[in-house]
Simulated assay, not measured.
Amino acid sequence: MVFTAIFEPVPGPGTGEVIGVERGVAVSAALPTGELLNAPPLRESERLRLRRLLRKLARAGRGSDRRARVKRAIAALKAREVDRRKDRIEKTGTDLARRSDVTTVGDHKIGDMTRSARGTIDVPGRNVRAKAGLNRGILAAGRGRLVARPEHKAPGRVQKTNPHYTSQTCDVCGRIARERRESQALFRCVACGH
């Protein structure tokens, strides 16, 4: 038998607080308070064990019992990493629902962002290895789940905003210009000086 439990929505503080969540690759999510939330990776000892297991897998004969044992051990390590990521997202989603009455996030299309750069046989892609690494980073950050869980916990209180030109728009005067972004970390408006 399967039972479904539908939980009550997490109540907001009732203060009209609005929190904007910026999602990234190096940092899973950044809050306006300066908090940086990262998906927890494997510990150093687990990473070493994974590397050893992958080397063992490469040496194991196909179809052997040893190969099956090594694959199960690798799967257990990967499952532990996924469980930690899901746990962090659950806790973050609950925290965001409790802290604010409205949470805004950029409406990024993750499927489009992680599309392959391989190209075709006639027109091969460029920087394919770098793009594959970027795709792994985007998917490992749990960006989609980071939006879905707060939506489940606080229905109707999560707003998706258009992400276009947000890094080039001045918060004070509202003008959009590419030259405002001096670097990834520094923004200076050429019109109002903000």
Rank of each mutant, 00 (worst) to 15 (best):
A79N: 09
P13A: 03
T94S: 11
A185D: 14
R98A: 10
V172M: 02
V21D: 03
R23N: 05
V2I: 12
D83R: 14
R115S: 00
R180D: 05
V21I: 06
H194T: 09
V172N: 06
S28C: 06
V102R: 13
V190E: 12
T169D: 10
R59Q: 13
R129C: 01
R52P: 10
I110F: 02
A191K: 11
L54C: 15
H108P: 02
A73F: 08
S64D: 06
G106I: 02
P11S: 04
K71N: 13
I6P: 14
D122T: 08
G111I: 06
R129T: 03
R178S: 07
K56V: 05
I6T: 15
P11W: 02
R52K: 13
A130Y: 02
I176K: 02
E151M: 15
H164K: 13
A185C: 07
R72K: 14
R143Y: 04
V21E: 03
K153R: 15
S116V: 00
R136W: 00
G174R: 02
L36E: 12
F3D: 10
R52F: 09
E44H: 14
R51H: 11
N38E: 13
A117F: 01
G142M: 07
E179F: 01
A148S: 08
L57M: 05
R85A: 15
D171Y: 09
K78D: 13
V2L: 14
R84M: 12
A60P: 09
E151W: 04
G125C: 11
R51M: 05
G156E: 08
L48G: 11
T120W: 01
E46G: 10
H152A: 13
A130P: 04
R51T: 07
G61I: 04
R118Y: 02
V25G: 08
A97K: 09
G144C: 09
R62M: 07
A148M: 05
N135W: 00
G193Y: 02
G133I: 08
K78C: 12
R23E: 06
Q168H: 03
R88G: 12
R23K: 11
K71W: 12
T94Y: 12
F7R: 14
Q168L: 02
E90R: 15
R80G: 10
A154Q: 04
D112T: 04
G125T: 08
D107K: 04
M113H: 00
V2S: 14
A141G: 02
A154P: 01
A117I: 00
A130I: 03
R118A: 04
H164R: 15
L139S: 01
S28M: 10
R47H: 13
P40V: 04
S100I: 06
A68F: 07
R43Q: 12
G144S: 12
P163F: 03
T103F: 10
R136A: 00
V10S: 00
R126K: 11
G133T: 09
L53M: 07
H108K: 10
R59Y: 10
L96N: 08
E182C: 02
D101S: 06
A76Q: 14
K71S: 15
C173Q: 04
R49S: 09
L57A: 10
T33E: 08
S28L: 05
V190C: 07
V10M: 01
R88D: 11
R126A: 01
E151S: 12
K91N: 10
A75M: 11
S28Q: 08
P32N: 04
V158Q: 15
L146T: 10
